[in-house]
């Protein structure tokens, strides 16, 4: 059995343009792979799906590389492709059980009550920001994984990768105001989960019924 050797009849001009495009893409895209992979892991929440997601993201990015406008933010462009790929093909077939929608649980209250309720609930008398430092980093990752996709995504983009609100708005395709309100709610839900963990570990006393 033999494998057909690729004929070298390709026009040289065409070939050199192929190489330049591939080299250019590799040069600017590969340095972001750890960031993309880390985000894919948080989105897909398992290694196999994360790997598929990264691979699809890079193949799509390469295919549409001509559409990238030089001089604009390439990293954000790559994240946008990652996000779209995830939403379009991975979210549906996620291998993990459905997450609790904390949004519905904690925020199904009318606007005014919501704020009052929140202030009361999230101000345990002995709260101390330092207590989070005592939690293990995988507990914090786990808390993050318990958020719904939309919330988890903004937290990952803002707090782990340091994207600006404008960049995030561009990546996820929402107005800047939505980015801020989503972040705000996501952090409040995270806070509740972290407090639960801290209480379980005995770092803070369980809230007394008030």
């Amino acid at each position: 059995m033999s494998i057909g050797v690729m004929p070298i009849k390709l026009q040289e001009t065409a070939m050199s343009s192929v190489n330049t495009r591939e080299q250019e893409f590799s040069r600017i895209a590969f340095e972001h792979m750890d960031a993309i992979y880390s985000t894919a892991l948080r989105l897909a929440r398992n290694e196999q799906d994360a790997e598929d997601l990264v691979q699809d993201t890079y193949m799509r990015a390469f295919r549409f590389f001509d559409k990238f406008e030089p001089g604009t933010n390439f990293k954000a462009w790559l994240f946008k492709i990652l996000t779209n790929t995830f939403i379009n093909s991975y979210r549906k077939k996620t291998r993990q059980p459905q997450r609790v929608d904390f949004d519905k649980v904690s925020y199904a209250l009318p606007e005014e009550e919501k704020t009052d309720n929140h202030v009361k609930e999230s101000s345990p008398r002995n709260f101390n920001p330092e207590l989070y430092r005592k939690l293990f980093d995988d507990q914090i990752t786990d808390a993050l994984d318990r958020l719904t996709d939309d919330f988890r995504l903004v937290v990952v983009l803002c707090d782990i990768h340091g994207f600006s609100y404008k960049e995030i708005a561009d990546i996820i395709g929402t107005p800047i105001g939505t980015v801020m309100s989503r972040l705000s709610r996501a952090r409040k839900i995270l806070q509740k989960i972290l407090e639960e963990y801290a209480a379980k570990e005995g770092f803070i006393k369980r809230r007394q019924a008030e």
């Binding site: 750890d34 960031a35 992979y37 880390s38 892991l41 948080r42 999230s122 101000s123 709260f127 920001p129 989070y132 430092r133 939690l135 980093d137 914090i140 990752t141 993050l144 937290v155 990952v156 707090d159 782990i160 705000s184 952090r187 409040k188 995270l190 806070q191 972290l194």
Partner: peptide, 17 residues
């Protein structure tokens, strides 16, 4: 409280290789 949450995420969720 909110700043503590942000810092907890930023400092503890590691970048993967």
């Amino acid at each position: 409280q909110e700043r503590a949450v942000k810092e907890a995420v930023r400092e503890n969720v590691r970048m993967a290789v």
